[in-house]
Design a protein around this nucleic acid. Structure first.
Lengths: 258, 258
DNA sequence: ACCGATCAGTGGTCCGTACCAATGCGGGAG
DNA sequence: CTCCCGCATTGGTACGGACCACTGATCGGT
């Protein structure tokens, strides 16, 4: 890295380390968290962050508030804290995964351009099994979507999604070649909060093979998901079949307590 | 539930809600956390916990300490907090998964009796690929284990593990039909802290099919794992092949921040 | 009977302080 | 030169207080 960019980086750093503005909209520890992420992105993995007491002074917050922000970053895998030594920028290994993400975000994070082809959309009654999973009456109407999801134009997975029609009136008028989660958020104000997932292996049948452009009986991953909002109301049931030759699931897991 | 057990439960509850003993060994918020787990297990899902201020008074700790304990339980999925309303015992759905567990713990949590059959153990030099993954010299010696893991006597997965021999001298003298993690902890004082995992699908070949007692070309899950201790020193590389007809991976994922 | 305003109670945020515990390093003893 | 002790630094724990934001229920008025 050249001397010039070092200077530029220092200037940015000084900027990022300035006192936070009084923004009554957002919680302070959240503002601090965001500022810290800016700082971290200007550093390299292994670099030591300034001491907590100094950071707190710079941002103009109490050490407790600062620690609340850092704790979040630590459990999200951004930094590692070592008592008696300091806080360090973490390796950007696999971490930060094992989060709830839609296909579009997932692919963007892996450096691919996501896209989508709508195979079918229908407006049908839920039926017994789906009704039970979404905690609605078997007679209640749902939207049923089938899509091929692509990364840089290459088919990556087949996606089947069911949502209660009551929550998303007119969904069939939306541009469903884009991120469904984004549509849910922007158009319907629905924000997914958590999801229960089940992962299991399979082999693709002839129809799936044609759509994914892989040989019949190729290994594939099935991911079944039921997504909930913050009040744990069921929002969607999704089943995705990922081709096994170009996709894997990566995560960092930790020991017992958080 | 009968009246008698109600009374018994109340007595237990009162007991669990008493002031905590002064145990300088463990951090207070950890003691509080454990006590809260006792309380939670006496309640049913959906029950409301006493207010934070009351709990803090009962345990004889500050509200901050109490909140620290509850925060851990919340992110671990034991309880759900609702501002303005209260803290409630969570549904024991899939949650609490997505943790780092060994096969033995995993199976015990699912209600099966875990066991193991040692296929082979050898003491060899790491080689290039493994050396890189464990961050050791390619010439350094490692123990190489192959085991069949069973649940209630039914073969569930084939496990291949490599560990630096330097960390576990005499490992080949240990009872390797038991939990490896338990041996690491009890005999060598090595505690795994986190692991990076990759999950992908496959089909079993003839040899694997025979060992797992499934048809050849059956779908299976491959889980590759590199385990680290708290200082992020690599401890083990493991590759497990799970039969797809009797095993799946379940987890609860949440949105962005923790 | 219905609807809306009010209010008490609950978790969420934030402050400032004090002390404990682990780490790394430097200085002094051997 | 080496080793060990002790000190300064850093994160970890804990306290107690104050106020904010949200929820659910209560109490009016219509």
């Amino acid at each position: 890295m050249s001397h010039d960019t070092d200077i530029a980086r220092s200037a940015e750093l000084a900027d990022a380390l300035g006192a936070i503005a009084l923004d009554s909209e957002t919680a302070k520890h959240e503002q601090v968290r965001n500022r810290l992420i800016e700082v971290i992105e200007l550093l390299q993995s292994g670099d030591r962050l300034p001491p907590e007491r100094e950071l707190a002074a710079r941002f103009g917050v109490s050490r407790m508030t600062l620690r609340q922000a850092i704790s979040g970053l630590a459990s999200a895998g951004y930094v590692v804290r070592v008592q008696g030594d300091g806080t360090f920028v973490a390796d950007p290994t696999i971490s930060k995964s094992s989060e709830l993400t839609g296909f579009s975000e997932d692919m963007a994070a892996r450096g691919f351009r996501p896209s989508s082809r709508l195979l079918a959309i229908s407006h049908v009654s839920a039926g017994a099994a789906l009704g039970q999973e979404l905690v609605i009456s078997p007679e209640e109407m749902v939207f049923h979507l089938e899509r091929v999801r692509m990364a840089d134009g290459i088919p990556m997975c087949l996606e089947t999604i069911d949502l209660p029609a009551r929550l998303t009136p007119g969904l069939d008028q939306q541009p469903l070649d884009q991120s469904l989660y984004e549509i849910l958020r922007a158009v319907y104000g629905i924000e997914l909060f958590e999801a229960d997932q089940v992962i299991l292996p399979t082999v693709v049948n002839q129809e799936q093979a044609d759509l994914l452009r892989v040989p019949v009986h190729s290994p594939a991953l099935i991911v079944k998901r039921i997504g909930y909002d913050k009040k744990r109301r069921p929002i969607e049931r999704a089943m995705s079949i990922y081709r096994g030759d170009r996709y894997d699931i990566r995560m960092t897991v930790r020991r017992n307590p958080t």
